[in-house]
Design a protein around this nucleic acid. Structure first.
Length: 921
RNA sequence: GCAGAAAUGGUGGAAUGGUAGACACGAAAGACUUAAAAUCUUUUGGGGCGGAAGCUCCGUGCGGGUUCGAGUCCCGCUUUCUGUACCA
């Protein structure tokens, strides 16, 4: 019988589904193993061949672990809230729920065809009220907690309230927006509204003022990638920088723990490094500069406390509150003009435009070390969001300050011996200090390192400031002026936000007549009728961002139907954490930070047992598209083969890769592809039209999208799975190239034919010696490869092993049985079919992973060429099972070796089984 | 600018410091076939020698180094990819 992948695959997919083969139950008698894929956003375009790459790898690993006796949790779900569904809704009026539902159905159909071993009974969708109830619930917990830096963990806000009532801010070390001090009496006298305002400064989920990209025409905040050159990508309306009240999560409170936790994780160094850079810890000092003729003190942060003697001016961020306070009346017009100019620029423009700009406020500060007056300027090269929004400028040793000083002709004082600052600043932290002597502190003669330490301790001892660690990591903006997201369980009473009662959860997303913002510029929820509490208080109209729903989904899979808790204690204690997480690097500074933060918060509350959610993480590479081109001769409808195109003046045009095979264009298909090509003429090279190619992002507009369904239809899921693994190392980015798939397809056909012979009546039961040898070699190799995530070499090993079986005597049942047991994780359908035809009534996933036996792996006799210092001297022949040490001994005992060594002791003897003995003296 | 990763045939890619190029694609030749497809066999890094089995030299981005021995380890470059970017 021919290998019929369609029949085999549909039969076993049906069988697995009907028998709930991959349904997982908590089972304390077996060790657990949790394998997780990053769940997809179900887009309207469906899956392309790049998406399943990681899923196939995780499926192989899951199946392998099952065969090794682990109770494997391998779930899948959908990150279902997202912009495309909402944009589509705005254009068509179609409820995002409907399109999302359709897209999910399509994804599921595509995933099912590939034969994954997911436990679909645990599926989660972030837009499902039974799921987002727990997203809202987590937000409420964050609202009701504050971060105690002294204890290094989150604590209930009620404890903070009690502390304030008893002794004010005295003795409280809390992560907060701005430093506040008040006494118990002051607190108690505040009244509810002001107390709530004060508490907002401490809550982990809080409302705060932040700078955002605001698009007045669209009536929404936009992310940086939704804005291009000051204009919204959708609609093309101007976008401005605006300070707005937003919900935020105090992720920054966890910066140090997020940093420290990285050391315990089995992630790649590059990913950990990316997160370290993102968190951006820098040690320095915060110090105050008094303003001349005023009570105001400017606070700055610096990592170069040693350079205070070189501070010749100060700069404020345009958004700094000190700008208004320090601008003198005569400078007001110019400062206002500058602020206006800056506010019109988007964040992006500010980054691209490196032109030096700024304006003098008219005020002076006093350098606390020299007592000299220095001017205070405003410039957009200083960021409001980092440090204190003000800097001390040291033009001699900071390139940005240098450019500014040069442009506005401000003094530059070098502080390091031998540093030539006539052309550029000297930024390196090395050298001997000069020009650094004041009335109370002398740094001259010290190295930069010593000077930093000395200056820091001086600043601290004199009360000019304090040693401080700053982090680049900022709090996450948590509100979106959007419809398609989780509503906040928050209402407003006289403008003050209050949490709703937990009993309202899930607070369901209401219907709206239109998905656009309202005329008054409110988010779409402003259109929802009855969007207020029974008492008539308005409910928050923003919704939560995409990362809200994806931050704790791995916990929900552990206990997806629990309506009493996000995850039950028992389930959490059994599954603990994700042993293996597979997904793309693009989430390094988003999801993977938020999720770790979210988990640490829940850990602080004692709700989960693990501090870190993802123990081991593997990043699969991106699969790019491989686009094909045809070359049209200018102003004609004639196309010339890529091999001859240089002789003509041509324009390259993308052509659908599905009508190109091995870079040869199917001419008839091309004429049918587009009406305008119906009468296309071709200039062929040797009867063929050769297309050009390029590696680009896989996208519809490039006509290079390859659909996994088409591959499954033509070659089968097992071939797709093997081929995706065979393409190269999992972590590497590579273009999809269907050209090589025939090799894998041939392998499965040959395997099938071999199995047919082995299963035929009269075929030997027992495997021959060489067959056993081939199989045990295979088992050893594949076991090591799976553990090391080297799936491409495993596929090669299968091919080699089959070749060896074919030249090792009559096909036997024992050989094919061993073969399918190790092939099962990679090609489950064909393995299952053969496994059952061998007479087994369990699934191949229940077949224990075979152990290899070294005794099959050795030859009977082996020739060992013995070489000294690289030159082969002689050969000895020994039984193949001679241990390594024995070979060394025998080689040395050999008469000529002994003569050659002449009684000297060898430093090192190297034995490569079957190959070389190399003796180093 | 900074950080990380990588560079091996026509192509994708193999190689615990020990026979570089496994495996696969593609290509070439042959078998089967009326023919094609499919399948099977052989060859396939480059140069040189040989009628042939075979022999030989050169070869892992570039320049050095360590080592009996380097694709692999160390130092210095070049290029490419990825992330991040006025972070004081």
């Amino acid at each position: 019988m021919e290998y019929n992948h369609k029949e085999i695959e549909s039969r076993w997919q049906k069988f697995w589904k009907e028998n709930e083969t991959y349904k997982t139950r908590e089972d304390t008698s077996r060790p657990k193993y949790y394998v997780l894929d990053m769940f997809p956003y179900p887009s309207g375009a469906g899956l392309h061949v790049g998406h399943p790459l990681g899923y196939i790898a995780s499926d192989i690993f899951s199946r392998y672990k099952r065969q090794n006796g682990f109770n494997v949790l391998h779930p899948m779900g959908y990150d279902a809230y997202g912009l495309p569904a909402e944009q589509y809704a705005i254009q068509t009026g179609q409820h995002p729920c409907v399109t999302t539902e359709q897209n999910i159905a399509r994804y599921r159909e595509q995933l099912d065809k590939i034969g994954f071993s997911y436990d679909w009974s645990r599926e989660v969708r972030t837009c499902d009220p039974a799921y987002y109830k727990w997203t809202q619930w987590a937000f409420m917990q964050m609202f009701n907690h504050w971060y105690d830096r002294a204890a290094g963990k989150a604590r209930p806000i009620s404890e903070l309230v009690a502390a304030f009532a008893a002794s004010g801010t005295e003795g409280i070390d809390a992560a907060c927006g701005k430093d506040m001090t008040f006494t118990a009496d002051e607190w108690n006298a505040m009244g509810e509204k002001r107390q709530r305002e004060a508490l907002m400064n401490y809550r982990i989920a809080y409302q705060g003022q932040t700078m955002v990209n605001w698009c007045p025409k669209l009536g929404t905040v936009l992310a940086n990638d939704e804005v291009s050159e000051g204009i919204s990508v959708r609609g093309g309306y101007p976008v401005e920088q605006r300070m707005m009240t937003q919900w935020c999560l105090r992720v920054s409170a966890y910066a140090q723990r997020l940093l420290d936790g990285l050391d315990t994780l089995g992630w790649t160094d590059s990913l950990k490094e990316t997160q370290r850079n993102w968190i951006g810890r820098s040690e320095g000092a915060e110090m105050r500069f008094p303003v001349a003729d005023s009570d105001i003190e400017l606070e700055i942060f610096t990592t170069r406390a040693d350079t205070v003697f070189g501070v010749t001016f100060m700069v404020l961020a345009p958004e700094s509150k000190y700008v208004a306070m320090l601008t003198t009346p005569d400078r007001k017009l110019e400062v206002d003009r500058y602020l206006c100019e800056v506010s019109r620029k988007t964040e992006r423009e500010r980054q691209i435009d490196k032109k030096v700009s700024g304006v003098f406020t008219g005020s002076y500060a006093i350098n606390p070390l020299t007592g000299k007056k220095i001017p205070v300027w405003v410039s957009d090269y200083v960021l409001a969001g980092y440090g204190t929004g003000a800097i001390m400028a040291v033009p001699a040793h900071d390139s940005r300050d240098y450019a500014f000083a040069r442009h506005f002709d401000l003094p530059i004082v070098p502080l390091i011996e031998g540093a030539d600052v006539s052309e550029e600043s000297f930024d390196a932290k090395e050298g001997i200090m000069i020009n650094s002597e004041g009335p109370e502190l002398n740094l001259n003669g010290m190295t930069v390192k010593q000077a930093i330490a000395a200056a820091k301790s001086f600043i601290e001892s004199k009360g000019l400031g304090r040693v401080k660690v700053n982090y680049r990591l900022r709090d996450a903006i948590f509100s979106r002026q959007r419809y398609w997201g989780e509503p906040f369980p928050v209402y407003y009473k006289e403008g003050t936000p209050y949490l709703m009662d937990e009993s309202v959860l899930p607070l369901c997303l209401p219907e709206v007549p239109s998905y656009l913002p309202t005329e008054q510029g409110e988010p779409p929820l402003g259109r929802a009728a009855g969007w207020h509490t029974p008492a008539g208080c308005p409910i928050e109209k923003c919704t939560m961002p995409g990362f809200a729903g994806s931050s704790a989904y791995y916990l929900r899979y552990m206990d997806p139907h629990n309506d009493k808790a996000l995850v039950g204690r028992e389930a959490d204690e059994y599954w603990q954490d994700v042993d293996l997480y597979i997904g793309g690097t693009e989430h390094a500074t988003g999801h993977l930070i938020y999720s770790r933060f979210w988990n640490k918060f829940l850990y602080d509350l004692g709700l989960v047992v693990k501090d870190e959610p993802f123990r081991r993480l593997v990043n699969q590479g991106m699969i790019q598209g491989r686009s094909n081109f045809v070359y049209r001769i200018k102003d004609t409808n004639t196309f010339v083969s890529a091999t001859l195109k240089d002789k003509y003046d041509t324009t390259p045009i993308h052509v659908d890769v599905n009508i190109v095979k091995a870079d040869r264009l199917d001419l008839d298909a091309f004429r049918k592809w587009r009406p305008e090509y119906a009468d296309a003429e071709f200039i062929l090279d040797d009867g063929e039209y050769v297309c050009g190619y390029a590696v680009e992002k896989m996208s519809k507009s490039m006509f290079n999208v390859v659909n996994p369904d088409d591959i499954v239809e033509r070659y089968g899921a097992d071939t797709l799975r093997l081929y995706e693994m065979f393409l190269g190392p999992l972590e590497a980015s590579k273009p999809w190239d269907t050209n090589g798939i025939d090799g894998v397809s041939r392998f499965l056909k040959k395997l099938w034919n071999y199995a047919e012979k082995a299963l035929a009546p009269g075929a030997p039961e027992k495997a021959s010696g060489p067959q056993l040898k081939a199989m045990h070699k295979l088992i050893k190799k594949v076991t090591a490869d799976i553990e090391a995530f080297s799936f491409n070499t495993s596929v090669a090993a299968f091919m080699i092993a089959l070749g060896e079986l074919q030249s090792a005597g009559a096909p036997s049942r024992e050989a094919i049985e061993l073969f399918v047991r190790v092939l099962a994780p990679f090609a489950p359908h064909v393995s299952e079919e053969i496994w059952h035809r061998l007479g087994n009534d369990t699934t191949v996933t229940d077949a224990p992973w075979p152990a290899y036996d070294e005794k099959y792996l050795v030859e009977n006799t082996v020739k060992y060429p013995v070489s000294f210092n690289g030159k082969v001297r002689f050969t000895i022949e020994l039984p193949a099972d001679t241990p390594r040490e024995k070979v060394q001994e025998l080689a040395l005992a050999h008469e000529s070796a002994a003569r050659w060594l002449d009684g000297r002791q060898p430093k090192k003897v190297i034995v490569v089984p079957g190959r070389i003995v190399n003796v180093v003296i």
